[in-house]
Simulated scan of single mutants.
Amino acid sequence: MSAAPKPVFILVRPQMGENIGAAARAMLNFGLDTMRLVDPRDGWPNPRAVAMASGAAGQVLDRAAVFPTLPEAIGDLDFVFATTARSRELTKPIYSPEEAMAEARLRIARGERVGVMFGPERAGLENEDVSRANAIITVPVNPDFPSLNLGQAVLLTGYEWIRQTEPVTPVQPGLAGGEPASRIEIEKLGDHYEERLEEAGFFFPETKAAGMKLNLRNMWSRMGMTRADVQMLHGMLRQLLRNRG
């Protein structure tokens, strides 16, 4: 496989070892080798995954990294897609798999780290998961039966990745030299604001608090911020609280 940078595929709370193995096979079919697992239901390693991966695809499983939470799994990434077949009432750019992988190539060519999240087999990604992504990938399928299994979703996305065979010229991000903020920096910014707004009584009434926090988290992940932007927003909040005190 080429050593050139590629997207990271993140399986969020996968349930069956067989499906993890099928995903590994699909990834290797298209030259993808970086898998991350978030809280796999049956633990890890999983012998059923190894059996399903069959042969060379076992190397993808051998190198798979396991994380207890999604924020930890995506913390070092600059841009993350969430694959979902349903509207989650969250405002985000929506891409087809083809458009998403074209965007991934552009971003990787300019030095960004890109990830694609896939949800658990039974119900897919939860709102809380999707809120942490920058954009959504939706497949144009039969609206009366939109569900894809995990291996199919990985296969389709991997296929669109390999189809982007034209060399990509690095694109200047146009941020006046600003370096894009990492996912962990955005996560910490969200934590900072949520904690201080909680102290100020912003999340009221209590019945709406969870939805307000979800929308706020979604807003942070949707904004294309630089590290300087994140630092400024932290500083603004600290100054406001200092003046209030």
Score class of each variant (00 low, 15 high):
Asn149Lys: 12
Leu11His: 04
Leu90Asn: 00
Arg217Leu: 15
Gly158Ser: 13
Ala209Thr: 15
His234Phe: 13
Gly21Asn: 03
Asn215Ala: 13
Lys208Ile: 08
Lys213Thr: 13
Asp191Ala: 15
Met232Ala: 06
Ile10Val: 13
Val66Thr: 06
Phe81Ile: 05
Glu206Cys: 12
Pro205Ser: 10
Met225Thr: 04
Phe202Leu: 06
Ser182His: 14
Leu61Ile: 05
Thr91Ala: 07
Phe203His: 03
Leu28Cys: 07
Met1Lys: 14
Val12Trp: 04
Ala228His: 09
Val230Met: 14
Glu166Pro: 09
Phe30Met: 04
Gln59Gly: 12
Thr138Lys: 10
Ile184Tyr: 05
Ser221Phe: 03
Phe67Pro: 09
Leu11Ala: 14
Glu99Cys: 07
Ile136Asn: 09
Gly151Asn: 15
Pro47His: 08
Ala176Asp: 15
Arg107Val: 01
Thr91Asn: 14
Lys6Cys: 08
Ile74His: 09
Gly75His: 05
Gly177Pro: 07
Asp42Phe: 15
Arg36Leu: 01
Val116Thr: 05
Ala64Asn: 14
Lys6Phe: 11
Met223Cys: 10
Arg222Cys: 03
Ala181Lys: 00
Trp161Asn: 00
Ala210Lys: 14
Tyr193Val: 02
Thr207Lys: 13
Gly151Ser: 13
Met219Lys: 09
Asp191Ile: 10
Ala3Glu: 06
Glu98Gln: 11
Met35Cys: 11
Gln239Ala: 13
Met212His: 06
Tyr193Leu: 11
Gly43Glu: 12
Val114Leu: 04
Pro170Gly: 03
Asp129Phe: 08
Phe81Gln: 03
Ser87Phe: 07
Pro68Cys: 08
Ala73Phe: 09
Thr84Gly: 11
Gln152Thr: 07
Gly178Lys: 10
Glu99Ile: 01
Arg183Lys: 05
Arg222Ala: 09
Gly58Asn: 13
Met117Phe: 07
Leu156Trp: 00
Gly224Ser: 03
Tyr193Cys: 00
Val116Asp: 09
Asp62Thr: 03
Asn218Lys: 10
Trp220Lys: 11
Lys92Phe: 01
Ala181Gly: 11
Thr169Ile: 06
Gly211Pro: 05
Leu106Gln: 12
Pro173Ile: 12
Ala228Phe: 04
Pro180Met: 09
Ala51Ser: 14
Gly119His: 06
Met1His: 08
Trp161Thr: 00
Thr207Asn: 08
Ala102Gly: 15
Leu61Ala: 04
Asp62His: 11
Pro71Tyr: 01
Leu70Glu: 10
His192Ser: 10
Val50Pro: 01
Gly111Ile: 03
Gln172Leu: 11
Leu61Met: 10
Asp62Leu: 04
Pro71Thr: 03
Gly21Leu: 08
Val50Tyr: 13
Ala56Met: 07
Thr69Lys: 04
Pro45Ile: 03
Arg238Lys: 15
Lys6Gly: 07
Leu148Trp: 13
Ala135Asp: 01
Asp78Asn: 05
Pro40Lys: 03
Gly224Cys: 04
Met232Pro: 00
Glu72Pro: 10
Leu37Cys: 12
Thr138Trp: 07
Gln59Glu: 00
Glu166Gly: 11
Leu37Ala: 11
